[in-house]
Every structure is written in C-alpha cells, then in structure tokens.
Design a protein around this nucleic acid. Sequence first.
DNA 1: GTTCAAGTTCAAGTGAACTTGAGTTCAAGG
DNA 2: CCTTGAACTCAAGTTCACTTGAACTTGAAC
Lengths: 159, 159
Amino acid sequence: MDARDLLPMGEISRRSGFAASAIRFYEAEGLIEAHRSGGGQRRFERNVLRRLAFIRAASNVGLTIEEIRDELARLPGNRTPTKADWHRISQHWRRRLDDQIAALERLKGGLDSCIGCGCLSLRSCAFSNAGDWAARQGPGAQLLPDTLRKPHPTRRTSG
Amino acid sequence: MDARDLLPMGEISRRSGFAASAIRFYEAEGLIEAHRSGGGQRRFERNVLRRLAFIRAASNVGLTIEEIRDELARLPGNRTPTKADWHRISQHWRRRLDDQIAALERLKGGLDSCIGCGCLSLRSCAFSNAGDWAARQGPGAQLLPDTLRKPHPTRRTSG
DNA sequence: GTTCAAGTTCAAGTGAACTTGAGTTCAAGG
DNA sequence: CCTTGAACTCAAGTTCACTTGAACTTGAAC
C-alpha cells in the first residue's frame, strides 16, 4: 500500500459529493475505513470512492444505514463488486422499489374510489381508515409497506 | 351548540384511532379545535372526527403538518367538504402520488441500466451520481422529487 | 364523600442521518 | 519559521411528528 495512493479527506469529499462530516459519520458507523497519516488525519484508499457511490445509490433507494452496512458487509471490502454481486443486490433493490410503487398505486386507487363516493367517511373509507394502521400485521394487503410508513417515533415494533 | 353533542377526548381518540397525545398535538398545531368543559377538559364537536379522517388520509399521502394545515384552512371548518372540495384536493394528492411513482420508476430504470453495465462508476452512472443531488434546481429531470428526498437535517433550502 | 379512570399541562425524549460549533492541530508553501 | 487552509475531536443541535413522564385535576359512579 503506497502512501501516494491514499487520498485525503478533501479530495474524497469533493469527488464523492459527500460532506466531510458525512464521511466521518460513515466511518464511525463502519461503512467505510480509513488509514491515518502520521499526524492523525484520514487517508482513504481509492476503493472508498466506489463504496461511497454505492452508499449514495442505496440511500437513494431508501435503505437505512443499518441495511447499507449489512449489504456492504457481504461485499468483500477490497474488491470491486463483481457482476454477480451487483446483480444480486440490484434484484433486492428492485423488489423494494416495486413494493413502494405498488403501495403508492394502491393509495392512488383509494383516492379514486374516494373521489367516486366523496365520502371520506370513517366507517367505510379504506383510505382514511385507521384500522389499516392499527392492525400491526393484519391478514389482508396493507395499504403501505414498512418502507413507506412514517416511522412512528417511539412506537416499538419488536421489543 | 348543545353540550350533549360534544365528545370527550377518550371517545375522539378511540373513534379516530389517534392517540390522545396526537390529538392534543394537532390542536396545538391548529389543525383542529376544541371547546372546554367547566374544569378545562376538551370537548370536541362531531365534525372533528371528519377532520381527523382527513388528516390521516393526507398524512398517508405524505403531506406535512404544514401542508395539511394549509389544505384544511381552505375547507370551511364547520361544513363537510363538498364534492367539489374533495375533487380539487384529491387532484392535488393524485399529482403528488404520480410524481412519487414516476420518481421511483426512474430510479428503477437507473438500476436496470446499472445491471447492464455492472459499473456503479462515479463518472458515468447516473444512479449513484452525486451531481443530481448537488444541483439544487438543475435544468433536466431530477432523479427524485422533493417529496421523496431524504430531508437533510440542517440543510436550509431558502434562508 | 370517596374513589379512580380519564383528563390536564409542560418539559423533555425519540430516531434517522447527519450538521454545526468550539477549540485544537496538521501539513504544505513561501 | 510563519502562515493558512485543511483536518481533527467531541458534544450538542437539527427536523418531523409525535410520545413519554411527572405531577396534578376532573368528573362520573357508588
């Protein structure tokens, strides 16, 4: 590992488009790694740029830091993702996007039927009915998948 | 206004599906109104239930409190939304949902082309390119509309 | 008159994903 | 050596839409 191959913070930031603070944050979260100069400054390997591109793409798809970390963990850190890696991952992301799209379509469908009836009734209108939300894992199709749910601040889902 | 027509907190909460704290919050935010009993307890008019149904629906579509307040402000408080009201509003919501759907489709398209090239390159891959994000109101179509952007915590958009 | 669930206020907490600020140090050029 | 911009750490702040907790009061029933 030749020191001349290592990039300083400023360059990584400029070339990735992430703020330095975000990059430090990602390092603290274990999404990327950094070497240190004699004086303690970060020095990044070039592949970190690819990781950051990956992080941005994943974040566009709506993955959480946690999920991105998991996905990155399955990518051996020092090699470029193979076509197979990327295929597997993109399948996963595509499914997620499809779910989100389907959910929005359902919501739009609800809107349509509400235009028809003009009701917005608490009893009969699925669109504004609380039941869909209260039922945690009901039997029928839920209006929105978790990925599009507003994450309710302190409502705990599993513990 | 006969006092027997006014509903207490518990009943509004139960029938709307909102927690009492949420209902208090909405009152504080000016989305709904409440009378008070002699001792200072809230007493709600029946139409508040319809307002709350509206709030839930709007929130499902992804409107912020601010936007919901604006939309409610245009609905005369004491009448049931007319068919015309509801039509106008649902048009608005539909456009928003359509935008979101289109954005997700674009994202998916980006995924597809990335599967093709297997690149995830910083230079050529629109999917993970930061340029789209950095450019505040660029000329071309943006990958995601504001409604689907992760709202960056302290990045100020206008002042 | 006693009881107690249901209601009240107000301040502070929550989670996600970072940013900001304060105060300090590094490293490269002249 | 001096300067100056880039980088460092660590704690605290930000937004949104509520929730939680503490400490207290109401009001309906018995």
